[in-house]
Design a protein around this nucleic acid. Structure first.
Lengths: 135, 135
DNA sequence: CGTATCATTTACGTTAACGTCAACTGATCT
DNA sequence: AGATCAGTTGACGTTAACGTAAATGATACG
């Protein structure tokens, strides 16, 4: 069993199992100052706060934010999570990102449409090949 | 004026202007064997074929193909552009890529939806802030 | 002849997000 | 003690698609 995570501290392998990331990733995030686990001697112990942050980090990645973007957002949450101006800034960043994503989706849609067109053409060429071969 | 592109040959800067790419890009593509311009002495002269290929390269990039993917597709076109099996292979690659893109689009849609949800929440928090400040 | 412009080759630099060793250190189990 | 883990730091490797700089060559103009 896991050593009974008394004050909800988790070892690096607990974290890996729970969040499906590698140790390298967690150390990397620490180096990037996205996480700051406690130390007992040399070993890392991840707190509830670290877990909350990691959750946000992974969500941010799903949104396509870079780690640097994420770090800045986390900093904003931290510094004075309750300052209205900070919240507004976070909100704006997210909205901008949303706009980007919708733009990206539009481009993707265009590319899909174009590629579909090419496929239709390809199918026609193939069909005419078979016709020619059948005579 | 451009030296009257007699047998439709273009210099590197003509190409850059026409396709909106840098010289570095064209040399890079040549190194990757995507293009194979003629040489007069040391200088490159791009033929009609090079331009056709570049068009396909750029289109491929819009589709999200890697240069390596594109090179292979171009090779297929070349080797025996009229062999049915080659055409089929090209067709299949394109279809697979289309599937990828539609998958990607689905994920993007999900992320957009989730992010929109977060934004709504963020807006609510902001609203409650203003309410609190107004009292 | 001088210079201005365009081109060429070579080769190292860049960015992101980790992967993959290597070489240890400690703790634990037997 | 010996062996076995789990963990640590450090450092170089990876991938894609070029950017950028340095040194040199070719050509045309006046």
């Amino acid at each position: 069993m896991t050593p009974a995570l008394t004050p909800d501290l988790m070892t690096i392998s607990d974290m890996c199992a729970n969040f499906d990331v590698t140790p390298r990733t967690l150390r990397f995030y620490e180096a990037k100052e996205l996480l700051s686990p406690l130390r007992i001697g040399t070993k890392r112990l991840f707190t509830k706060r670290d877990r909350a942050r990691l959750t946000l980090i992974l969500r941010g990645k799903r949104f396509g934010f870079s780690l640097e973007d994420i770090r800045q957002l986390l900093d904003l949450y931290d510094r004075d999570g309750s300052q209205e101006t900070q919240l507004i800034r976070t909100y704006d960043v997210a909205r901008a990102r949303l706009a980007q994503m919708e733009q990206q989706r539009a481009e993707l849609d265009e590319a899909i449409a174009e590629l579909k067109g090419q496929l239709v053409w390809g199918a026609e060429v193939l069909a005419s090949f078979r016709k020619a071969a059948a005579e």
